[in-house]
Simulated scan of single mutants.
Amino acid sequence: MSNEQRIHSILSAVSLDSTITSYPTFDLQDLNTVVDLDFDLPTNLRLGHLVEKIVSKLIRTSSNYEMIYENIQIKKDEKTIGEIDFIIEQTFSKRHIHLELAYKFYLLDPSISKTLIKNWIGPNRNDSLFEKLEKLKNKQFPLLHNAVTAETLKNLKIELIEQQLCLLASLYIPYDYKTKLPPEYQKAVKGHYMNFETFVNQNSAEYEYYLPFKKEWGIDPVSNKTWCDLESTLEQLKTNLEEKQAPLCWQKKGDEYVQFFIVWW
């Protein structure tokens, strides 16, 4: 994984819009950045924190936004009650924006609910899109208007700060799923998911595979140079699934690439 590939993957990721999130969308495509972006990235960060560092750098190097605050710890009686991701300023209008950022991978499980937004879950079923939006609504965005925050950001007029969300999402649907999704979801669909048995039945020696590390999730499989055969991939998959870890799999056949999760549930 090169820094350039990782940076490009963030810039090209789909932001879920306000029809889903109910919050104004901050689109990274609106940043006026240099054409060929390549800068050093930390190697010791988890994916979510790595994405924060990339977006911070993109904002700082853009010509139309300035970083005012980043990762602001809000404390009361020496206890942290929350964190604000970014306060940025639009250069032309001088508007201040409280920006919350998230980088998520969700799988559609239609059996959960009749309500579509409640059916998007993490690959290991330990988080969901609905829960994330509820946390933003009840905790992360209201934090700006906490009295302690006003004291921390006393050089700013809190009441004039806008709030926007950059929720970068990669969505995956069940294998052979036939129902048409609304366009606001469909544009974020990157692939599908299946269980181990389906994977074995649908794949053969003519394909090549790679199970990316989590830090590589979201990168275009076309850029990958290392591929494995089916037999060695099956062995690695068995280990992942026994540990109740649903891996992402990249598949290659000639010049055709697909990606999918293989779930243990």
Rank of each mutant, 00 (worst) to 15 (best):
E231G: 06
S204T: 15
Q140I: 05
L144N: 09
Q140S: 13
N138A: 14
L144H: 03
C228P: 00
E208G: 02
E208Q: 15
N195H: 11
T152C: 04
K190H: 03
W217F: 12
L237K: 02
H192I: 11
L133G: 13
V189D: 04
Y209R: 01
N195P: 13
V258I: 10
K225P: 05
P174S: 11
H192Q: 12
V222T: 11
F261W: 03
K139D: 14
E242R: 06
K154P: 00
E216R: 03
L168T: 05
K190C: 14
V148C: 06
L248Q: 05
L165K: 04
S232C: 10
L136Q: 00
E162Q: 08
E131H: 01
I173K: 09
P183E: 05
K244H: 10
L160Y: 09
T149P: 10
Q164F: 12
Q164G: 09
M194A: 03
N146K: 02
K178G: 13
W250M: 07
T233H: 09
N240K: 08
Y193L: 05
L156S: 07
K178V: 15
K215G: 12
E159R: 08
K132S: 08
I161C: 10
Y185F: 13
Q259N: 11
I158P: 06
D176I: 05
E243G: 02
Y209W: 10
N138H: 13
V148K: 09
Q259M: 01
E134K: 03
A205Q: 04
E159F: 05
F196Y: 15
S223T: 13
D220Y: 04
L153P: 11
Q251H: 00
A147E: 10
A147I: 08
L211C: 07
N240T: 06
A246D: 08
G218M: 03
L211M: 07
P142L: 13
S204F: 02
L248N: 06
N146V: 02
N155D: 11
Q202S: 15
C249L: 14
Y175I: 12
E243N: 09
T239V: 14
P212W: 00
P174M: 04
T179P: 05
L237P: 03
L167I: 00
N146G: 02
A188M: 02
Y257H: 11
Q236V: 00
K252V: 00
K252A: 00
Y185L: 10
C228R: 02
T152L: 01
G191R: 03
E243D: 07
A150S: 10
L136D: 00
N138T: 15
A205K: 04
K238C: 09
P247S: 05
W217H: 07
E131W: 01
P182H: 00
L156N: 03
D220G: 07
I158R: 05
V189L: 10
F196G: 07
V148H: 10
K244L: 11
T239W: 01
V258N: 09
Q245R: 11
A246C: 15
S232E: 06
L248F: 15
E159Y: 09
Q245H: 04
V189A: 09
Y177A: 01
T179F: 06
K180Y: 09
K252I: 00
L230M: 06
L156M: 06
K244P: 10
L133Y: 04
K238L: 12
C249I: 13
K139I: 15
F260A: 02
T226H: 07
L181P: 08
